[in-house]
Structures are given as C-alpha cells and as structure tokens.
C-alpha cells in the first residue's frame, strides 16, 4: 500500500509550489530496471528523507534528478521547468540543484574558500570579489570561518562535508540533494553535518536526503519515502511510517 503525504502547510504562498516533480522515471541498465516508473513530488520548503535497503535505487533516484544518471523514460521537472538534456540548458538547470555526496568530493587542488567560490565564477554567475564575499558568508554559516585557507586534506571529514554543503549553496540552488552525507563520518562529525542540514531545513530550503540516520528522518523530515527494488513502496509522514499502521515491509526495515 502506498500512502501519499500531503504537502506541508506552505509558508508564504497561497498555493503550494512543486519544486521537484518526477513522472514515471525509469532507468534501465542492461535490461535491469534500476528505477521502475518512479513518481515523486517534492514541494517547496519540504524536507524529504529517502530510506530503503542497500541497492534499492536511492542514489540512482537522486542522480536522475539532475541527470547525472540519464533516465531511460519519464520526465523530471525542477520548479515547473522540464530538465532539458541539451548540454547548455542542462548545465544551467544543474546549477539550481545542489548536491552533496557521501565522499564529499571537494576539489583537492583548491582551498575551502576556493572550493566554495569556484562554481559561481566558473559559470559566469558572479565576479571574483562578489563570489568571495558570499563564499565567506556561507563558510561562516557552516561554522568554518577559520578554515577558509585550508585544503581538503587538512580538514576532518565533517569539516569537508560542511564545506561541500557551502559549495552547493553558493549556487543558490532551489533544492538540495544529499546522498548519505554522513555515512562516511564518525558519529561526532556526523552530528555537525546533521546540524547544518537541520538548520537548512528549518530555513525553508527544499531538501531531498537519502539517509540511514533514522533520527534525522524522524525528527527533521516532513516526509519519508521508502524505496525497494527501484520502486517507491511507501511515502508518508514520519508518524505514518514509524507507526504500527505502516506497511509490513517498512516496519521490517525499520526494526532490522
């Protein structure tokens, strides 16, 4: 049984705004359906946690949103605009989708500050001076002002991930995608990153986060999506999915 969550009370708008819209998105590799006609709506300001067993397609789902993985079928819209595979348009749309990876993927030849400044300058959105001012603000926001001049190799995992979040925010994205942003971190460092994510969520950022952190899914997310074998098996509020009435498969996953 699939339960669908109602959009959270819109903050300012009269009608809720669809930020990410996935319609019948499939990804087939070598005859195997890694995503199987997935439908997903994410409303502006929502925080959606995606959970599910390993290999269920959570990472792939995120990667299709910005076409890092090109879907074999279906349609994806960002803020009402269809993601266009044509290279120049795609680049512009990707800029509006922040992505945070399990392995941070900071540019290792650049300092923390340069990592955050680089994309706005390289895409022609900002002049160097302006990009630097904004980068310093974002780095302050993730609590790392003293690390601006440090290279990734001189930062802890948690610090690298917070810089990676600042780097994504520098493009002023409409939505932030997190793929197990804390899985590679020790618990204390994971905490720092989860705090930043919670702040972002509270500030009204639209978030889709693949996570194994059930605490985060339960307390911070407005909605939890449960995936299995390339399909969305359940989609509801944390209360729905952590309740006795949740689908059996979900209950088994949550207690395992």
């Amino acid at each position: 049984m699939v339960t669908r969550a109602k959009p959270r009370q819109p903050v300012a708008a009269l009608s809720p705004r669809l930020m990410v819209e996935m319609r019948g998105v499939s990804l087939i590799i070598n005859g195997k359906a890694i995503l199987n006609a997935v439908d997903l709506d994410v409303w502006a300001g929502q925080t959606v946690a995606i959970i599910g067993p390993s290999g269920s397609g959570k990472t792939t789902l995120l990667r299709t949103i910005n076409h890092l993985a090109r879907p074999s079928a279906g349609e994806i819209r960002l803020d009402g605009e269809r993601i266009d595979p044509q290279a120049a348009r795609l680049r512009a749309q990707r800029a509006g989708i922040g992505m945070v990876f399990q392995n941070f993927n900071l540019f290792r030849n650049m300092t923390a500050l340069e990592n955050v400044m680089f994309a706005p300058v390289a895409t022609g959105r900002a002049r160097v001076a302006e990009a630097e001012t904004r980068a310093r603000k974002l780095i302050a926001r993730v609590g790392l002002s003293d690390k601006c001049g440090s290279y990734p190799s001189e930062l802890s995992g948690g610090q690298q991930q917070r810089i990676a979040i600042a780097r994504a925010l520098a493009m002023e994205p409409k939505v932030m995608l997190f793929d197990e942003a804390t899985s590679a971190l020790d618990p204390e460092f994971a905490r720092e990153v989860l705090d930043v994510m919670s702040d972002l969520s509270a500030s009204g950022m639209t978030i889709v986060a693949v996570t194994h952190e059930m605490g985060f899914a339960r307390k911070v997310a407005d909605r939890i999506v449960f995936m299995e074998a390339g399909s969305i098996l359940a989609d509801g509020t944390p209360d729905d999915l952590f309740s006795e009435a949740a689908p059996l498969r979900v209950k088994r996953f949550l207690t395992s």
Binding site: M99, F107, A168
Partner: peptide, 25 residues
C-alpha cells in the same frame, strides 16, 4: 578521483573548465 568530476558537473561547471582547473592540475 572520479567523484570530483561528478561534483563539478552537478554544479553546472562547463566541461573544459572541469578539466582545466580541477582534473589536470
């Protein structure tokens, strides 16, 4: 590491800048 190329793509950075400023260095 390949992940940096993906991260750069996800930011919308044009390919030639990815190779010139991130990968080749």
């Amino acid at each position: 590491p390949r992940g940096q190329i993906e991260a750069a793509r996800a930011l919308g950075i044009p390919d030639w800048r990815i190779w010139t400023f991130i990968v080749y260095p």
